[in-house]
Amino acid sequence: MPTPPRLATFEAWLLQNGAILHKIARAYATPTDRDDLHQDLLLALWDALPFYRAEAQPQTFIYRVALNRALNWTRTRRPHVPLPDLPAPTRDTDQLDQLYAAIAQLPELDRSLILLHLDGLTYAEIAQVLGLTETNIGARLTRLRQRLKEMLT
């Protein structure tokens, strides 16, 4: 079977996994910088696409690329004062805003971990993305979920 063109694969990935990039941009950037980071993540994904090998799930690959770029982005950016966000008045959005605010207070690596967990990745998949052991991930997640619970109550 011929290899699908790069653009077609890119579009298909964005259709299925585009939300991942939004979530990562929201977790790692302030509202003013979010669009910049999102653009950066899109470009990173486009650039990394030729290096994709089918042994990993596209979702795992996208997470790797996007989290690496987001972490890289935070180290080269000067810290900005976050501006207040304007949430839409729905119940789900309110909850999400609180959750994102709580996530933004976590250390960088914990943010990655909780994003992957919230998106329903298995321990094995999280281990593949982060390069940690499954045992380590289990222990960290238990601690993190506890911490989030405390932050949200």
Binding site: L15, A19, L21, H22, Q39, L99, D119, K149
Partner: peptide
Amino acid sequence: MNLESYEAAWRNQAAPTPADLARRAR
């Protein structure tokens, strides 16, 4: 509200508009 309801809200989030994203990248 417990953490589970937050997690459910997260997973129910609608996907972004992929056509716009692809167009911007292009």
